[in-house]
């Protein structure tokens, strides 16, 4: 495995993706919506409409299920600040796990299937790059925008939440330990998992659209986490973040090991 070759594959794909509006739009739009628009909405919508957030059923359910330990920590805050803190720090956290999948889907699905459609893959397969180098290069190329977008979104979200929290409630909610672990461990693990899965699907699919449809399942764990947290089944504290990071790391490692064993260019072109 020559990393220089894998990086060359990655570099070309990144350069190509940077000029592809279809890949750029989700990589930019998703973090902007999640990191900037959503927190502003949760803060200013109640103020503008004079309707407390807990009027909304899903927020009320979430708020009701906040574990006692978290409530104690928020004990000194007023109800509006507590709502803000709980939503900003806990409720929206799983959404950030969606960003790598959402922002990378187009690039990852396009990695092999898109090249097949544009008939650029055959020339690539004739090069001395090994199957593993091709697979890693393609995975990295899809991972970079997704993970980059997620980290950018977390930074921007932290800035917006702290600015609003400080000016309205004298709070600086982020970062806390759970968010640091999420950004440093869980997000990369979840991103590698979702991108690797989409790239593997792309290598088997005939079209990138087909790959996108099949690979859509990668968002399910984050959606499930969001729903479970809403109903108080789990709460995204640092322990859960560490546990999920371990699970996603294991799944990502398994997936990549399996892909490296099974991906053969001979099967990818070929007598099919």
């Amino acid at each position: 495995m020559n990393w220089r070759t894998a990086l060359a594959v990655c570099g070309r794909d990144l350069r190509d993706a940077a000029r592809n509006r279809g890949a750029l739009v989700p990589a930019v739009a998703v973090p902007v919506v999640l990191a900037v628009l959503l927190p502003l909405l949760i803060v200013y919508l109640p103020a503008l409409t004079r309707i407390p957030l807990t009027t909304f059923n899903w927020v009320e359910i979430f708020y009701r299920h906040i574990p006692p330990g978290v409530r104690e920590r928020l004990g000194g805050l007023g109800p509006e600040a507590t709502e803000f803190y709980a939503l900003a720090v806990y409720f929206f956290a799983p959404l950030f796990l969606l960003i790598p999948a959402a922002a990378s889907t187009v690039a990852a699905a396009d990695s092999f299937a898109g090249e097949k459609e544009r008939r650029t893959l055959e020339a690539l397969y004739y090069t001395p790059a090994s199957d593993a180098e091709l697979l890693w290069g393609k995975t990295l190329a899809a991972l970079v925008p997704g993970l980059g977008a997620a980290w950018f979104a977390i930074l921007a979200y932290t800035g917006v939440i702290n600015a609003v929290g400080w000016t309205r409630y004298g709070l600086l909610p982020l970062p806390n330990l759970a968010w640091v672990l999420m950004a440093g461990l869980l997000l990369p693990a979840a991103a590698v998992f979702s991108v690797a899965l989409t790239v593997v699907v792309s290598a088997k699919a005939r079209t990138s659209r087909g790959a996108q449809q099949v690979a859509g399942v990668v968002v399910l764990p984050a959606v499930a986490l969001l729903v479970m947290q809403s109903f108080g089944v789990v709460y995204l504290g640092w322990g859960l973040v560490l546990g999920l990071a371990a699970v996603f790391s294991g799944l990502a490692w398994l997936l990549l090991a399996l892909a490296a064993r099974t991906f053969r260019r001979e099967n990818a072109v070929l007598y099919s």
């Binding site: 060359a8 070309r12 350069r15």
Partner: peptide, 8 residues
């Protein structure tokens, strides 16, 4: 250029 990189 990108093709040449794949040949080292």
């Amino acid at each position: 250029f990108s093709h040449g990189l794949l040949y080292g």
